[in-house]
Design a protein around this nucleic acid. Sequence first.
DNA 1: TCTGGTCCACTAGTATACCAGTAGAATAAT
DNA 2: ATTATTCTACTGGTATACTAGTGGACCAGA
Lengths: 228, 228
Amino acid sequence: MIQTAREIRETGRQYALRIIRSRIVHLKLEPGSWISENELAASLDLSRTPVREALQELSAVRLVEIYPQRGSRVSLIDYALVEEARFLRLALERAVAELLCGSLSEEGRRRLEDNLRHQDLYIAQEDPSDFFQADNEFHHLLFQEARKEISYDMMNSMTAHFDRVRHMAAKTGENRSRNRDDHAELLEAILCGDTKKADRTVLRHLSYVQLDEKELRSLYPPAYFAKT
Amino acid sequence: MIQTAREIRETGRQYALRIIRSRIVHLKLEPGSWISENELAASLDLSRTPVREALQELSAVRLVEIYPQRGSRVSLIDYALVEEARFLRLALERAVAELLCGSLSEEGRRRLEDNLRHQDLYIAQEDPSDFFQADNEFHHLLFQEARKEISYDMMNSMTAHFDRVRHMAAKTGENRSRNRDDHAELLEAILCGDTKKADRTVLRHLSYVQLDEKELRSLYPPAYFAKT
DNA sequence: TCTGGTCCACTAGTATACCAGTAGAATAAT
DNA sequence: ATTATTCTACTGGTATACTAGTGGACCAGA
């Protein structure tokens, strides 16, 4: 499921970033644990330089905390940050939807409709990862069509906080068909230029995943969580 | 006006980032010009490492473009990016204002009111930089009170695109008292929990600076601008 | 047992060395 | 003169070496 091999043309820094991020999200690197640039470099078969650059990037979104001359550690689970990731995504998705209302290009419409067909294709499939990817791509397409790719990247870099708790909760009812219908409804609203409806749909779409903090705290070591 | 000396406790990377960013915004490094890590390192009296890390960060927001094994250059003026900076700020400021409506702490209220008093103090001052700083601080405080500091940092890292064209236009009528009044009105709306009014105020406040692309293109070399 | 001080292993920050890859100049071939 | 080829100087990516600074282990003295 998780791609670990270094891809062609992928630079060491990108590779390190991808793997370390993945290890954090999947708790292979535990919240609060100290991480050594040297160890990481060794385990990734890289030198400290690209590893260090990756850690810098992760610390920018507080997924890693760097204490100069002391060490670095994986950030604790901080619901304020999970919430901020959600906040950021909601704010941007709403703004993008509003922007696209009535201004979506023919080409953009075609791409989004193509994507919806892919979602239909994957909806009944055993392995959910294809649908998952199409889902992500749908939202990415919206940002691309609105020419707000950097905002998308920023938002994406923060979602790791969200992904981590989602992975911990694991069983969050993945309702694919509901998601697909939301996507279709959103696209329809955008095409009609119905700002209000688009806004409502985004709001609803992004409020499904309710990650109960209390439940999670009961399932995992208290040391995983920030004191708030 | 521009602080160039390296501050105490400031790491080489932070220093490099601050200076390079400033040089780009103030056109000391021209749009489209090629920059050499070695030259920058020499001029900042640093090695390539911290300079390189700063450039990585700048390239994340497309202020610098890195072409592996070929070179790096200062990004051309791209109105799509200026617009994205504006978009990002507007989306986030609106969301923060909405969030704070009715949930601003006593402490937060005190801080913002203190800041408003500072703005009053600096409003008639010859040198505009004090007011400018207080203005920025006001918005920063809003994000702090909403506990959305990372979003603020992200937004801030993109404003360089905006700052650069603003600096080029130079004479954009800085109307301090109008800005101050907007701030006061926004705070009032937040304190009253008047979401609608807060939203309107933010919208108006952020739409003053109209940077006419055509005018700017007539004042500066065509080579400064991206083809769009 | 406690206190204060020395030392030591380790850290991140920085400097430097080396590499592969690029583009353009210089050269050679036609 | 034109094209093909080699060379060269430079780039960013990576590896490695060095430094200052940190905190804990250890120890001496009470």
